[in-house]
Design a protein around this nucleic acid. Structure first.
Lengths: 236, 236
DNA sequence: AGAAGGACCAGTGGTCCGTA
DNA sequence: AGAAGGACCAGTGGTCCGTA
């Protein structure tokens, strides 16, 4: 059981980023705010000049912590330096599962609606329980990597070893995880939702849209290929 | 198959309510708007004096239609006058199921997320398909009545007959549907979600919060009763 | 008074993009 | 350039309450 080792790992040597000061309280006439065009709903507020955080003399800068970035590690390998390994990444998914189970138990106790997936509520619960290193964008980002780990651990391990040897970064390893998953879907009738739901640890995660789209696109490709092959070989 | 008869029924003799005019276009200095207090988020805009719709000479009042109200009918009985019966009500649930199946088929075809429940998307689809008499508040309002019909049709029928004979209105019949459902839940371990999900036509409907709460409250009552009974009979 | 349903709202799923 | 995650946003579940 590597739970405690991983938890310890997750706590030590976190990167630090200064907590941004309350902007509205500043009122220091400094900086211009970028125009937000009337039609541009997606434009977000930018930092204004002179708004950067700065260490106050009174030491008021309490530091915000950010997790170490992931690196591609082989199974069992502990990341060195200010990095986290992939065993730790997958362990986060197991932790989320534990938090979901707790949320479910509370809901059942209270006679409330009981979530079957890792929802916003579960992320909030995790944060409140002190697991500040768990957050939704991160977990959603790597879901399909965890899926491969669940569905074909051998292939997942081989991919990790290969990408580590090639010195690839986490992003390209992550990208590479899609392909074997699509291949698994192909073998099982293309129903990626059914594949997720059939696996107890995976069923609690929403199927990532990108993976669903890739499966759909590849199914259509395969269908066209077999159609044209049929057209080629059969005398219509 | 009573589908067509029911559809025809739903179309004839609808009540009419005038479509409200665009308020902002009026600009007729008439009427005061009720203050919306700063802290009262729930307060809604009210009609102002002189804002009532009025028939224009040019006949511009296109009429908005509203379904006839339901009345308590026995199984097989057709509602007379400007009323709809309960067979028709339950038929609406079957129609929603058909719309869901169509939405599911489209989603599968496109490789998109496939709803398992009657969602907003399904209600939108129904409306677009011309079933303007289907709407979310109505369907949600009577879900538990439909649930009783699915789970114990005999009891549902008996309740309808009894309430019709007593001349009860739809509201009190609807209220009365909760009790037998709670009794069913009691017999099956109180898990109302499991009961819904085990029934193919009911599984597509969200369990109403009120029903869930009633089951929970009654379970606790029963537990307390058996505990105090135990305390009474056993020498602690 | 009883009832149908437009429309509102808090909190969701999804992920962009400002950040370091 | 690569990556973590705060925070945004369109569309949801839920149902209130203005309406007739």
């Amino acid at each position: 059981d590597t739970t405690h080792a991983l938890d310890a790992l997750s706590q030590e040597g976190l990167s630090e980023e200064p907590v941004q000061q309350e902007k509205e309280a500043a009122g220091s006439g400094g900086g211009t705010i970028w125009e937000v065009g009337p039609g541009k709903k997606k434009q977000r507020r930018r930092k204004v000049v002179g708004e950067e955080e700065q260490e106050e003399e009174n030491g008021g800068g309490s530091e915000r912590q950010r997790e170490h970035p992931f690196i591609v590690t082989e199974p069992g390998e502990v990341a060195r330096g200010k990095k986290n390994g992939l065993d730790y990444l997958f362990h986060l998914y197991e932790q989320c599962r534990d938090f979901l189970i707790q949320v479910q138990n509370i809901a059942k106790e209270r006679g409330e609606k009981c979530p079957t997936k890792v929802t916003n509520q579960v992320f909030r619960y995790a944060k409140k329980a002190g697991a500040s290193y768990i957050n939704k964008p991160k977990m959603r980002h790597y879901v399909h990597c965890y899926a491969l780990h669940c569905l074909d651990e051998k292939e997942s391990n081989a991919l990790r070893t290969a990408f580590k040897e090639r010195g690839e970064n986490v992003g390209s390893w992550r990208q590479a995880c899609y392909k074997p998953l699509v291949a698994i879907a192909a073998r099982q009738g293309w129903d990626i939702d059914a594949i997720f739901n059939a696996h107890p640890r995976l069923a609690i995660w929403y199927v990532p849209n990108k993976l669903r789209q890739l499966c759909h696109a590849e199914r259509n490709n395969t269908a066209i290929a077999s159609t044209s092959a049929a057209a080629h070989h059969l005398p219509f």
